[in-house]
Amino acid sequence: MEKDIKILFVDDHLLILKGFLSMFKESESFNKINVVIKTSGDEALQTVKNALETDPFDIVFTDLSFNTTTNTIHSGETLIKELKKAAPNLKIGVITGHSETNRIYNVITNLNPLAYILKDSCNLTELNFAIERMLNDEVYYSHIVHQKILKRSIIQISMDEIALQILEELPKHPKIGNLVGHIVNSNGKLLQIRSIEKKLSDLRISLNAQNNTDLVLKAKELGVVD
């Protein structure tokens, strides 16, 4: 028998927590998964700390906003920070209604949760998939979250004159080396081959491109260049 997976759900709405519980009760994997629910950050942190020695949690899913006046932990962000301090091996995911790019971007860049799941789209299948990836130390974001992050990259690229120049010039030249002499920075200086290659690699990462051809295609598809 596989080892039981111990998961903690934190949300200030008891109804939602009960929803998760009922979801797992109905699922086949219920036997394997040990679900604990807490309605406040303070309680959640304490529970994790208490269980550390005997039977530590594998995963914590937390909401981002807690409507509370009595507790010291006011937001999911704070809780995540505290949890990371208390239990470095704990895998942390976010399940929240916040779908604004701003919140998503900030949470992902600052706290690096293994999962960012939106409540609207959240169902048992998604949760199971997310848990599986998290246990393998892989990242899972809801589809919308993915889209938002990609879009953000596009915006950033569209503001980056050098990136735009490279994307414009790339299809015209058979070799990257030929780009030298065509790319100019804001001070009017020509860019060296190393800077161009660095920029290209950054662009590939942010647009999820396999290679340079893929990059140009994606940029066109996403409307970064015409």
């Binding site: 701003n102 971007y105 900030n106 938002k148 596009i154 915006i155 409307g223």
Partner: peptide, 13 residues
């Protein structure tokens, strides 16, 4: 960053 985030929310092809 925030401004970019905001724009991202509305940007589409």
């Amino acid at each position: 960053e925030q401004m970019i985030n905001l724009i991202s929310d509305y940007f589409s092809p």
